[in-house]
Amino acid sequence: MKILLGSLLAIVTLAWGVDVLATGGTSRGALPWVIRQEALYLSGLLSIALMSLAMFLSTRPAWLETPLGGMDRVYRTHKWSGILAVSFAVVHWLVEEVVGDILKAMVGREGRIPKEQFTGFLEVMRDLAKDIGEWAFYLVLAMLVITLWKRFPYKTWRVVHQAMPVLYLMLALHAAMLAPTDYWTQPVGILTALLGVGGIYGALCSLLGHIGRVRRASGTVTAIDPASPDVLTVSCQIDNKWSGHRPGQFAFITFDEKEGAHPFTIATSDRGDRRMSFQIKALGDYTRTLGKRLEVG
Rank of each mutant, 00 (worst) to 15 (best):
R36N: 13
Y183C: 08
V159Y: 05
W149Q: 02
P187F: 03
G120E: 11
S81H: 04
A85S: 14
W135H: 15
T156Q: 13
G212L: 02
V188Y: 12
F252V: 00
I266C: 00
A227H: 10
V124P: 00
I35G: 02
Y183G: 02
R36V: 04
A105L: 14
M106P: 00
F56A: 11
S47E: 05
S52N: 05
L167K: 08
A39R: 02
R126M: 14
D256F: 09
V90F: 06
D270E: 07
Q186F: 02
T23Y: 02
T119D: 14
V197S: 04
M164Y: 12
F56R: 01
S87H: 05
I3L: 15
R293K: 14
M177C: 12
A217G: 00
G212C: 05
Y201C: 01
M1A: 14
A267P: 06
L294R: 03
V145W: 11
V18N: 07
I190P: 00
L194T: 07
L122K: 13
T66K: 15
F250T: 00
A267V: 02
L68C: 04
F250E: 09
A22I: 11
S81L: 03
I11N: 02
L103I: 13
T185I: 12
I190Y: 11
D270F: 07
T222H: 05
L207I: 10
F56Q: 00
G108T: 09
Q37I: 11
H210I: 12
A39L: 15
W157G: 00
D230Y: 04
R293N: 08
T147R: 10
T66F: 10
V159E: 02
T156P: 06
K292A: 10
A172N: 05
Q237E: 11
G219Y: 01
F255D: 04
W80A: 01
L144R: 10
G260V: 03
K104T: 10
G25F: 11
I266V: 11
G100S: 14
I146E: 02
F278R: 00
E123R: 11
D285P: 00
R126V: 12
T119M: 09
S206C: 06
P61S: 09
E38F: 05
I113K: 07
F137P: 02
A10V: 13
I266T: 02
E96D: 15
F88I: 05
L294V: 04
S27V: 09
R213S: 07
T26R: 04
P187I: 02
R112I: 10
E123N: 14
L4A: 15
Y41S: 09
A176R: 05
G24V: 13
T181L: 14
S58E: 07
P247G: 05
Y183F: 15
P32D: 09
Q186S: 14
V98T: 08
R246A: 05
I280N: 07
V18H: 06
E123Q: 15
A85I: 04
S52G: 11
M143T: 07
T59N: 09
P229C: 05
A62C: 00
S27Y: 00
I132E: 15
H174A: 13
P165A: 07
E295F: 06
G196V: 03
A142M: 12
L148E: 03
N240L: 08
F56N: 06
V145Q: 06
G70K: 04
R274M: 01
A15T: 12
W135M: 13
V140H: 08
G196Y: 08
K241C: 01
R36E: 14
I35K: 00
Y168C: 01
L294G: 07
